[in-house]
Design a protein around this nucleic acid. Structure first.
Lengths: 341, 341
DNA sequence: TTGTAAGCGTTATCAC
DNA sequence: GTGATAACGCTTACAA
């Protein structure tokens, strides 16, 4: 139903090829002919069919970007960074929300490949995302992993140093006097979760504080997960004096549960987490966090990807580890002393 | 370079058509042949080229969704609602971030049309978005506007009742004793801004409070905008006792400026806004807001669009106006009395 | 049940 | 400077 090249050609009294040349500014066209063609294009509101174009040119100038949650304040800047970089390179981005769901993620991956995107940026839902990537890996499809790495998977990465970040966060808690520190983490099949748990252990061990499995709660990395973990934790006696949650949303849910119990942060219990909570610091400038440079994840990820796409990347896979910055605010009793338990 | 139907056909020792039939489950294929073809598909990791498919079938089963800011807590659920509904209908969504930029928005519109999306959901950047839509409107292209309407534009809409919402918000302020109420709004070419200003006026006039242009500040609807408007407002003497901001991000920026001046909400000054601030209420349960049902915007918008696409919609354009709910918290001195000025 | 031919809308190539 | 032709990967229509 839409207007095609032929329609324009017919109206301008020329061949399809001439119209194509005018549209693409390729080849040379007589000035008068060009004028007639342009007139026809405008009159008919002709917009070239990219499907056909891509089919023949064998390039879509499109990349895919899959994240577990566009809405999460951490991923939002990642998306922005990737999109900006892609635009500058003349590429568009197909953005997909996997909702952390493996099946949905797999569907999106196939979908994007079916669309013949030239590369894929993926923040995988979990280690098990690997299965869906196997065919791509085998075919050396341009692929860059963001935020989370995959075991036994040799491909480009942009991640941050979760071990060091978590360690510093917990060291900070210890430095201000905490010794009974709970950790809310996710199931064992997400690299960031594993690494942050490792950082937690390292910090405790370095301070000769025994690591108690009773203080480690497995949960989902959303608000509900934080809420549930906190509820479980509240049964402990004595209560921990501080909590380290695996990410921002988990911290929010935790806050909610603590609030409902009448516990105040940081007076009654300390709270720190990974990922800053954009905007939130303005309303409640107290959560001490490890802030990851989201936009940089997107920017660098896209850059790596374009190097792959253009074949400039070589055979070895690159691994970029970004620094995660500690932002100390007041959520851990740094100023008021640790509650006695 | 990717594997094609022919490659599979060759490997399975059949014609391309047979492979096509197996892939699509259309026509009838001998069980043994089918097995061989499936084996070949698996062995080669064949994924059908959707570009080619769409080109011949003349349908992409794809819709476009353009919002000014995926990250904004209001639009996030809109996106989710639209995506879920689309998926159920067997469609995928191309999600684009216009950043409120008219040029970018226009590029995305053309891009999506070039992609031959079958319909478009658009939360327009401003009244001037209309220009880019003219060709679509003329061609009766399936289009549904979200959140914001466009002047002199006859097409399907899902908006909320900004006039009534704003009126109720300001009536509430008045009811608890405020009379000197500032309003931070956007430039005049966004329908929601206009409507909320209108609601503000109506509420004041109904209470026989003169509308003072000095109390109305035009700004951008992001955090920076709120911050700047608040800084200007702080020069007023006497200060207003309450502020009504056009949306959530503006309120955040306003908070920031007030905080820097040592003004507390709601003790020193009241603050209410449109749009709830997801998650935020947990940390700081005090902002009184008009909450718009974001997800419903997306869901209904997509439904309207699919009715258009399938031709079930008829000629007249539909206009859905959603109720905007007042959520009273404690940001307007309801409990503590209005500061004397 | 299976294969052949034509064509979707565009561009690359090579004549004219 | 311009146009015919083939091809991109696939499906519809028809033939065997």
């Amino acid at each position: 139903m839409p207007v095609t090249l032929r329609d324009v050609a017919q109206r301008a009294g020329v061949s399809a090829m001439t119209v194509s040349r005018v549209v693409n500014g390729s080849g040379s066209v007589d000035a008068e002919t060009q004028r007639r063609v342009e007139e026809a294009i405008l009159a008919l509101d002709y917009i070239p069919n990219r499907l056909a174009r891509s089919l023949v040119s064998q390039q879509t100038r499109t990349i895919g970007l899959i994240v577990p949650d566009v809405v999460n304040p951490f991923f939002a800047p990642v998306v922005r960074g990737a999109e900006t970089t892609a635009r500058k390179a003349g590429y568009r981005v197909l953005l997909c929300n996997s909702e952390g769901d493996l099946r949905l993620e797999r569907e999106y991956i196939e979908d994007l490949v079916a669309h013949r995107v030239e590369g894929l940026l993926l923040a995988p839902a979990s280690d098990r995302s690997r299965v869906a990537l196997l065919p791509l890996l085998k075919g050396r499809f341009p692929l860059v992993l963001l935020d989370r790495s995959l075991p036994d998977t040799d491909c480009d990465h942009v991640i941050s140093d979760s071990v060091a970040g978590a360690r510093r966060l917990v060291e900070h808690l210890i430095a201000v006097g905490h010794r009974r520190i709970a950790h809310f983490t996710e199931s064992d099949d997400v690299s960031t979760g594993r690494d942050r748990l490792e950082g937690y252990r390292q910090a405790l061990e370095a301070a000769h504080i025994p690591v108690s499995e009773d203080l480690i709660f497995r949960t989902t990395t959303d608000r509900i997960g934080g809420y549930r973990a906190a509820q479980l934790m509240l049964h402990l006696d004595p209560l921990p004096t501080a909590i380290f949650t695996v990410n921002n949303m988990t911290a929010l849910g935790t806050m909610q549960a603590l609030r409902e119990r009448g516990l105040k942060v940081p007076e009654d219990i300390g709270l720190v987490c990974f990922d800053d909570v954009e905007h939130l610091a303005i309303l409640s400038p107290f959560l001490t966090v490890v802030d990851q440079p989201g936009e940089t994840f997107g920017t660098l990820g896209a850059q790596l990807l374009f190097e792959r796409i253009s074949g400039k990347a070589g055979n070895r896979s690159r691994r970029i580890v970004l620094q995660a910055d500690l932002i100390v605010r007041q959520s851990c009793c740094a100023n008021n002393g640790v509650p006695a338990r």
